[in-house]
Amino acid sequence: MFWVGCHLSASKGYLAMGKMAEKIGANTFQFFTRNPRGGSVKALDLEDIAAYRAFAAQKGFGKILAHAPYTMNACAADEGLREFAANVMAEDLGRLSHLPEAMYNFHPGSHVKQGADVGIEKIADLLNRVLKPETQTEVLLETMAGKGTEVGRNFEELRAIIDKVELGEKLGVCMDTCHVFDGGYDIVEHLDDVLAEFDRIIGLERLKAIHLNDSKNPMGSHKDRHACLDEGEIGMAALSRIINHPKLKHLPFLLETPNELDGYAREIAWLREVREGE
């Protein structure tokens, strides 16, 4: 099954997102758990969640991806900001316990000149505080482009976080194609080599989702500027190889391209055309 979707607004609830996804040809989607530039969150609507789950089961939807807000910095130098991040993640995971079909993705954070090693320690410390044996939701570390003082700019930094988390079996990775390309991984000409490196360092069994984006900048730029499919430096030929790769094709692919719904619909239709064996 080809699981493909995009980022949708959660303002009208899960059922509305499910119906919108179906309308544009998607069978999965991503959403922010709360205001992405703040911290406010809507009251939990268990009736809406139940309605969405029934709809998704009927339509054959795959796993969906909940995205933490950008304001959540797990390795901030300021203790108050780290406490805010811990509270947000704990609350989000509690709310997502009502939605077993969802995974939880977050940007590891920015060390803000403390150094990557310090950042890694603080991210792991936060995860050790928040993750519990009863936590059911898979938590995904996102690959980052290495802009500024971002942690997660390479596979080694993600592995270092995982190794310091006591309940590391609850962690996975979301690979963003724009981010890894901007981070210096040649997914255009050497995709197999990149995946072999990921497997050696992290393990492909931890790769749980793909953010499928083109990049406005060349490989290794560390810029993190997403482009619409086939309008950037990665190109549709390489993106087609990614969605058809035997080690990736079972994963959910989520678009974060700079689009409105009609643009997402065109990209999803395009991806379905080049997907092999569907």
Rank of each mutant, 00 (worst) to 15 (best):
P100V: 10
T137F: 15
Q136Y: 13
V151I: 15
I123P: 05
H111W: 14
H111Y: 13
T143A: 11
E138C: 11
L126E: 01
G119F: 02
V130K: 05
P108W: 06
A116R: 08
L126N: 01
L140E: 01
E142Y: 09
E121P: 09
E121H: 13
L140C: 09
P100Q: 06
G109R: 03
L141Q: 02
I123C: 09
L140Y: 03
E134M: 12
R129Y: 15
M103Y: 08
G115D: 04
L126S: 00
M144N: 05
V112G: 07
L131K: 06
P133N: 11
S110I: 13
D125Y: 03
G115L: 12
E101A: 15
A102R: 12
G115C: 04
Q114R: 04
R129D: 08
K113L: 11
F106C: 02
V139W: 11
E150K: 02
V151K: 00
G115E: 05
E150Q: 15
P108R: 06
D125H: 10
L141M: 08
H111E: 14
L127S: 09
A145I: 04
E150I: 00
Q114W: 07
T135I: 15
V139N: 01
N128C: 01
K147V: 04
E142L: 12
L141E: 00
V151R: 01
L140P: 00
E138S: 07
T135V: 14
L141I: 01
T137L: 14
M103A: 00
Y104D: 14
E134G: 06
E150C: 12
I123T: 11
F106N: 00
I120E: 06
G119K: 00
D125K: 06
L140I: 11
L131R: 09
G109H: 02
T135C: 11
T149A: 03
I123N: 03
V118N: 06
L126T: 02
N105V: 13
H107C: 13
E150W: 04
A116T: 08
A116I: 03
V139S: 04
H111L: 14
K113G: 12
H111G: 14
T143D: 07
V130T: 08
A124P: 00
V118A: 12
H107I: 14
K147S: 04
V139M: 13
K113H: 04
H107V: 15
V118P: 02
L140N: 00
A102N: 13
E134P: 06
P133T: 08
T149K: 00
V112M: 15
R129M: 05
H107F: 10
G119Y: 00
T149W: 00
Q136G: 08
K132M: 11
Q114F: 08
E101S: 11
L140H: 03
P100N: 05
M144T: 06
A102E: 09
E101Q: 14
E101V: 08
P133A: 12
Q114A: 15
L140T: 01
S110E: 10
R129P: 10
Y104W: 07
A116Y: 03
N105F: 07
K147H: 08
H107W: 07
V151M: 03
E138K: 07
I120P: 07
F106Q: 04
G119H: 01
H107K: 11
G115S: 13
G148M: 15
E138D: 07
E134T: 15
E150H: 02
P100A: 08
E142K: 01
D117H: 05
L127D: 06
Y104L: 15
L141G: 01
M144A: 07
